[in-house]
């Protein structure tokens, strides 16, 4: 009883294939415009792909093979959608919003309200039952929206950045709530926040330019990212290239020296990954020319925790504010990033 999807939509350069176990939650990560929302729209039936097939728990959601051409309408799919905005129906009370799914499924008014009360209680919003959406805070509204989605008893819950519109106080509360209610459920959650992926998802899929660039258990992806995007989320530098004896050689000819476990042969695609704390910044080339010293031009400086993050040449380094002041760093300056080879992990791309 899995969820299986293959879909192509040429107009948006979208081509994705994925599957989900019965009680599995996956997080979809990716930059803006990567096709994350397109994915959810295709699954929920709001957008029709050019080709593909989707099966949910033995039911065919769509099969666009020439001889089949099956397309289920959104309301028959069992894929409830929770968006960035709560989108509670403004003319209905919180309770009636939550009762909407059961009512649409044919439940009596009394039974639907009972179900709704249960789910409102489940998201700690029982006391909000009588309120109109206009009288709810953003966090409260999103909790009611979660209850509404769950009350529809979906076989697959689709969450499109549910925390993105919430303030920093409401987001952690909802995240904890989602962790609780998503346990044992099949769900796909789109997020920009690595914390969501860590807390809520069993697996992550990184979507870039309409295609899956990386997939795997959340922990593995964060520890050993293979895409620049995942590395960025994990807070790591990533340089992709071809494996050589010395390390990884980029297309531009830059050589990043590091260590690998020896299973990699020269000529294979590989990535060199290292934390920004392992990068030292110097004004001139020195220290007897260590193996990894790259002249780079500073593009940006930003506070990062109690450090200063120096962005330069597609890499970044974290240094102390005092060091930054001593060096007199400003955007546009050329500096040298120096990385100890021992801090660089090299593994297959």
């Amino acid at each position: 009883m899995t969820f299986q999807l293959d879909a192509t939509l040429a107009a948006r350069g979208f081509e994705v294939s994925l599957s989900l176990g019965p009680a599995e939650t996956i997080a979809i990560l990716g930059p803006n415009g990567a096709g994350k929302s397109t994915l959810l729209s295709i699954i929920s039936g709001l957008l029709r792909p050019d080709a593909g097939k989707a099966v949910l728990g033995g039911r065919v959601l769509f099969d666009l093979a020439a001889d089949k051409n099956i397309w289920r309408a959104p309301h028959t799919r069992g894929t409830a959608l929770l968006a960035q905005e709560a989108l509670l129906f403004p003319h209905l009370s919180a309770l009636d919003n939550v009762a909407f799914g059961p009512r649409s499924a044919g439940a009596s008014s009394a039974a639907a309200r009972e179900t709704a009360m249960h789910w409102l209680a489940e998201v700690d919003a029982g006391d909000l039952a009588a309120r109109r959406p206009g009288q709810l805070s953003g966090g409260q509204a999103q909790r009611v929206a979660v209850a509404r989605a769950l009350a529809a008893d979906p076989e697959l819950l689709l969450l499109d950045e549910p925390m993105a519109a919430l303030d920093i106080h409401a987001a952690p509360l909802l995240r904890r709530l989602l962790k609780r209610v998503l346990a044992g459920r099949r769900a796909i959650i789109i997020t920009h926040d690595i914390l969501d992926a860590l807390m809520l998802a069993d697996r992550v899929i990184v979507l870039e330019d309409g295609r899956i660039s990386e997939a795997g258990p959340t922990r593995d992806v964060l520890e050993k990212p293979r895409s620049r995007f995942a590395a960025g989320l994990a807070g790591l530098n990533l340089v992709a290239g071809t494996v050589s004896d010395a390390g990884v050689t980029t297309a531009q000819g830059m050589v990043v020296a590091g260590h690998h476990d020896g299973t990699l042969g020269p000529g294979q695609d590989g990535v060199a990954v290292f934390p920004p704390s392992a990068v030292s910044v110097f004004l001139t080339e020195e220290h007897g020319s260590p193996r990894n010293s790259f002249p780079v031009r500073i593009t940006d400086l930003e506070p990062h925790g109690d450090q200063i993050r120096v962005h330069a040449g597609g890499l970044f380094a974290d240094i102390t504010p005092a060091a930054s002041a001593d060096l007199g760093l400003t955007p546009g300056m050329t500096v040298h990033f120096v990385i100890k080879a021992a801090a660089i992990a090299i593994y297959p791309a």
């Binding site: 959104p74 309301h75 959608l81 909407f100 649409s104 509404r148």
Partner: peptide, 12 residues
């Protein structure tokens, strides 16, 4: 937007 949400909640 509201109509899309309603449809995914199972409303014909």
């Amino acid at each position: 937007k509201y109509e899309a949400v309603a449809a995914t909640l199972g409303a014909r």
